[in-house]
Design a protein around this nucleic acid. Structure first.
Lengths: 111, 111
DNA sequence: CTAGCCTGTTCAGCGACTGAACAATGACAT
DNA sequence: ATGTCATTGTTCAGTCGCTGAACAGGCTAG
């Protein structure tokens, strides 16, 4: 999976559910905790996600992961980008599948 | 891309064109020369591909990359495997595309 | 106060590469 | 023969996106 696609999946998850633990995110996306932390850090670095202390207590470990305005814009842009890309993929798969069917039906070297 | 899919792409390339340079292969597959060499080495290690000196001269650098009998069997098996997987991917993409269309049409936070 | 649980953080290691340098060979011109 | 050059495969340090495991800080129940 490409990094930008992973980004979009995280953004989608957070927009619907800002108060979610990193472990829940990781499980939802099917990756490890360390891996998710790595992705999330990159999103914060890009300014797309902000980690806010939950309920205003400065010493709590639990965070809310909020999309910044730039994050919302990025999500819209990425969504459009992947819609386009996935439509192309879809068409490409048709051809790929036909080719595979042919090869399975008539393997070279068969008698 | 998964390693096994990359394997299949290399096998397909070689079955059609055993006398091809590593640079041509890399270019065809859209990866670097070092990367292709890495993949190819793994295929030789698995016994799916044999590197033969071209034209019987033991000191030539140019090789022919031949599929072994096991290589041919592996290619058939992988082809069937990916046919099945890609049909599933195809179905999954339909849903994914519909979801993306909805999000593009009705972005959250729009007035 | 202590034990246990839930948080996020960190880090060594790994797989699949990239990019660049390198080395061996053959062909060609001088 | 000798020097140059293009063409080949090989090697290696470094990067990226992770995994799995250990770690540390804070809350809650007993």
């Amino acid at each position: 999976m490409s990094q930008t696609e992973q980004d979009l999946r995280v953004l989608r998850l957070l927009q619907g559910q800002p108060d979610i633990t990193q472990r829940q995110m990781a499980s939802e996306l099917g990756i490890s905790l360390g891996g998710l932390n790595y992705c999330l850090r990159a999103l914060v670095e890009k300014g797309w996600v902000k980690m806010d202390n939950f309920s205003g207590n400065p010493n709590k470990l639990k965070y809310a992961y909020l999309l910044t305005p730039n994050g919302v814009r990025a999500k819209t842009r990425l969504t459009a980008h992947f819609l386009k890309q996935k439509l192309a993929e879809y068409e490409a798969l048709k051809g790929e599948i036909e080719r595979l069917k042919t090869e399975v039906a008539q393997p070279r070297g068969s008698k």
